[in-house]
Structures are given as C-alpha cells and as structure tokens.
Simulated scan of single mutants.
Amino acid sequence: MTQQMSRLRPELGDFSSIIFLKAILIGIEQALGDKTAAIAMISAGRNQGRIFARDLNLVGNKAFLSLEQIQNNINLVLGKEGTRLCLIDKIEQQGDIYKVYAKETFCSAGEVEGSSRTCTYTLGVIQGFLEALLEKRLYGKQTESVLRGGTHDVLEFCSIA
C-alpha cells in the first residue's frame, strides 16, 4: 500500500464496510440507470487503477514484468494486504487478450445466485492498472461470473487499435 493510503483516517482506519460500498453502487445505478452507472464505475475504476500502478512505480518502467509479477503487483494493492477489492488467482495471455481470474470481488459480494450484476468497478481498476503498465489503451469485458455458475469473475482485456 502507498504511504498516502495508510493515513486516510487515524482512528477508523482506511477501510469501510462493503455494505456501504454496495449501497453507493446500487444508489448510483438507481439514480443514473444501469448503463450510465456502469460507464461511471468503469471510468472511476480505471482512474484508480492507473494511480495504483503509478504508486508502485510501474508506469513508464520499460522493464518487462511476467504475468506472475503483474498478478503479484495487482494483488498487492487489491488483495488481502491492500484495499481488499478482490483477489486475483491467475492472469493468462492468449495472443493480445489478457484474461484475469478474480474472486471475492466487491461487485459480486452479497449478490444472489443468478444475479445479472457485473464487476464494473473491479473491471475498471484492473483495466486502468494494466493500461498504465502496458502503456496501451484496452477494452475490457466480463466473460464469466461466480453469480452465474463460474468459478471466478473472469475479465478479458484486449488492445484498442
């Protein structure tokens, strides 16, 4: 975690209940509609993902990182020792497509089986992180969900030409 993030609230700490975060997400969806809210959440996530990559000094660093190193860095900021947004079990590259296998995502937490909810904010954070790291503009989409029978929330990212 970054030094800045460790000093946000001296008494309550840096973390808030996922219940309140989900309430914010649902409130935004109700106020703006699902599609507009998804655009806003992805955009907010992309911005935060870029900040995380920058804070880890990964932006503009031309040294090649393996997929395992990328996964470790993402988990550093998003996992147990970081913001606890989600855990990344695996990142695969198939040609120019990156597949990210996430679990315990913020967006899927507390949802009922079969829910149509997608991981918009989580997708955005990972997309922004990868864009900053790879120095490429990416398009992201969710292809599998734990809410609809998947073992993971699978997010796929490809380069935009």
Score class of each variant (00 low, 15 high):
residue 158 C to A: 15
residue 107 C to S: 08
residue 39 I to A: 12
residue 25 L to T: 15
residue 147 L to T: 07
residue 71 Q to N: 12
residue 34 D to Q: 14
residue 68 E to H: 11
residue 25 L to I: 14
residue 70 I to H: 09
residue 61 N to F: 07
residue 128 G to S: 02
residue 94 Q to P: 05
residue 131 E to C: 09
residue 72 N to Q: 15
residue 130 L to P: 09
residue 136 K to I: 05
residue 91 I to V: 13
residue 90 K to N: 10
residue 2 T to N: 12
residue 158 C to Y: 03
residue 81 E to V: 01
residue 60 G to A: 09
residue 88 I to P: 03
residue 37 A to H: 02
residue 79 G to R: 01
residue 110 G to R: 04
residue 128 G to F: 06
residue 30 Q to T: 14
residue 24 I to K: 06
residue 84 R to C: 10
residue 161 A to S: 15
residue 116 S to T: 14
residue 105 T to E: 05
residue 46 R to D: 01
residue 113 E to V: 12
residue 104 E to F: 01
residue 122 T to M: 06
residue 54 R to W: 05
residue 29 E to T: 11
residue 142 Q to D: 06
residue 82 G to L: 00
residue 109 A to S: 10
residue 83 T to R: 01
residue 137 R to C: 10
residue 145 S to L: 00
residue 101 Y to N: 01
residue 76 L to V: 08
residue 23 A to L: 10
residue 67 L to M: 11
residue 102 A to Q: 09
residue 43 S to P: 00
residue 145 S to A: 09
residue 87 L to E: 14
residue 123 L to T: 10
residue 132 A to C: 06
residue 88 I to N: 09
residue 160 I to K: 11
residue 150 G to I: 04
residue 13 G to A: 07
residue 141 K to C: 11
residue 161 A to K: 14
residue 14 D to N: 07
residue 28 I to M: 02
residue 20 F to D: 05
residue 17 S to T: 15
residue 147 L to F: 08
residue 155 L to W: 03
residue 110 G to C: 04
residue 80 K to R: 11
residue 25 L to Q: 13
residue 10 P to N: 01
residue 113 E to L: 13
residue 77 V to H: 05
residue 86 C to M: 13
residue 4 Q to Y: 05
residue 56 L to Y: 02
residue 112 V to C: 08
residue 46 R to S: 11
residue 136 K to G: 00
residue 17 S to K: 12
residue 135 E to A: 15
residue 96 D to I: 06
residue 128 G to Y: 03
residue 30 Q to C: 11
residue 93 Q to V: 08
residue 38 A to L: 14
residue 139 Y to K: 14
residue 81 E to L: 04
residue 142 Q to P: 02
residue 54 R to M: 11
residue 97 I to M: 08
residue 156 E to D: 00
residue 1 M to W: 07
residue 25 L to N: 10
residue 76 L to F: 13
residue 88 I to C: 12
residue 102 A to D: 02
residue 138 L to R: 09
residue 45 G to Q: 03
residue 151 T to K: 13
residue 21 L to Q: 09
residue 133 L to G: 00
residue 38 A to G: 07
residue 122 T to P: 04
residue 40 A to V: 13
residue 20 F to W: 06
residue 53 A to R: 04
residue 48 Q to H: 05
residue 92 E to N: 12
residue 61 N to V: 14
residue 64 F to N: 13
residue 26 I to G: 00
residue 153 D to Q: 07
residue 117 R to S: 13
residue 78 L to T: 04
residue 95 G to I: 01
residue 54 R to N: 14
residue 81 E to M: 08
residue 61 N to C: 05
residue 60 G to R: 06
residue 110 G to P: 02
residue 98 Y to D: 06
residue 41 M to P: 01
residue 129 F to C: 06
residue 138 L to N: 00
residue 104 E to N: 11
residue 84 R to F: 04
residue 125 V to Y: 08
residue 44 A to W: 07
residue 124 G to F: 00
residue 141 K to A: 05
residue 120 T to E: 15
residue 98 Y to A: 04
residue 13 G to N: 09
residue 49 G to C: 11
residue 135 E to Q: 08
residue 53 A to Q: 01
residue 78 L to Q: 06
residue 112 V to I: 13
residue 79 G to Y: 07
residue 5 M to P: 12
residue 97 I to N: 10
residue 159 S to H: 10
residue 141 K to P: 00
residue 82 G to Q: 05
residue 29 E to V: 11
residue 55 D to F: 06
